[in-house]
Amino acid sequence: MAVFTTVSQDEIARWLLDYDLGEVRALRGIASGIENSNFFLTMEQDGVTREYVLTIFERLSFAQLPYYLHLMDHLARHGISVPAPVAARDGEILRALKGKPATIVTRLSGASQLAPQASHCAEVGTMLARMHLAGQDYPRQQPNLRSLAWWRQTEPEILPFLDPAQRQLLAGEIAHQTAFFGSADYAALAGGPCHCDLFRDNVLFDTDASGAPKLGGFFDFYFAGNDKWLFDLAVTVNDWCIDLPTGALDVDRAQAMLRAYHAVRPLTATEAAHWQDMLRAGALRFWVSRLWDFFLPREADMLQPHDPTHFERILRQRLDADAPLPWI
């Protein structure tokens, strides 16, 4: 969520004349992330101040965006704590700003938990399973745009920047995932709308009346797509339940998340059999994307590309160590 497209408070005030949100009190760019231009937006109406997030989309098109925005609206209406898109007076939730698609969503309360404990992981696992089930009747369809086809398309672009060992790892894992994705077992896996990017910085934790932490919600759905639910779970475990310096799984946190998820949406024997394949797929997806962002960057205010070697380490860990599911 770096700022690629700058916008002034006066410009946004004029743009917001088509909304019924009151007066602009503050507009502040958000530095984290690398895909879209995001801003915290403070509005005041009838003496009440409310917080929103304004997003200007840099890569996604007007044709692609309704899938994400209406998914967020669908999940919010089904009791999942996610940002809800705000409609203009004409009912539209997606409009042009400085020639690019833009939207406003409600801002969730809370802060990211960057040093999660098993209790945080359990709450994430429970809500992720609830989110998957809530999305079952979402009518729109769009594939995960950062899945196998994109990995294969991106491979020749990033190969010149890799050493021989990295090239071998990349080619070997893409070949493995190509075979896995083409298997009957893969086709049989349950799926539907997935977040596909549920990292620690895309989840907020708040506190309850007693001061204890509670999950505030999931946000940043702009990598979402229809995929296998097991892939979404693997991506989440690969971030929330690891030792960051080495990429090794933290057993206590992984068990807490998986058991909490399994209690809401029990995983099948086929899913259990391919858990390791999906952990590898989740690691590959983000190694490829971080290599691409790191070596082929775009210019942006506050752009902070992530270190691609982090997910190279995770992928190598998943190749070298089994990660049995805790309920088996």
Rank of each mutant, 00 (worst) to 15 (best):
A2K: 00
F4P: 00
T5A: 03
D10Q: 02
D20G: 13
E35T: 10
N36D: 14
E44W: 00
Q45Y: 06
Q45K: 11
E51R: 13
V53Q: 00
R59C: 02
A63I: 14
H70W: 13
S81W: 06
P85G: 07
A88C: 03
A88L: 04
D90K: 07
I93Y: 02
L94G: 01
P101M: 07
V105M: 04
T106F: 03
G110R: 08
H120G: 04
A122I: 03
E123L: 09
T126R: 05
A129T: 05
R130L: 08
R130E: 00
H132D: 03
P139T: 08
N144I: 06
W151L: 11
R152N: 14
P156M: 14
L159G: 09
P160G: 15
F161G: 12
A165F: 13
Q166V: 14
G182L: 13
Y186S: 05
D201E: 12
L204R: 07
D206H: 08
G211I: 10
A212N: 11
L215V: 14
G217S: 04
F219K: 03
D220R: 09
D220I: 07
F223T: 08
A224R: 03
A224T: 01
G225V: 01
T236Q: 09
V237R: 10
I242H: 10
G247N: 03
A248V: 07
L249W: 07
H262W: 13
T268C: 07
E271I: 10
A272H: 02
A272F: 03
W275I: 05
R280F: 04
G282R: 12
A283D: 11
R285Q: 12
S289A: 10
R290Y: 03
F294G: 07
F295V: 14
F295Y: 15
E299W: 02
A300I: 00
A300T: 01
P308C: 14
R313M: 11
P324S: 03
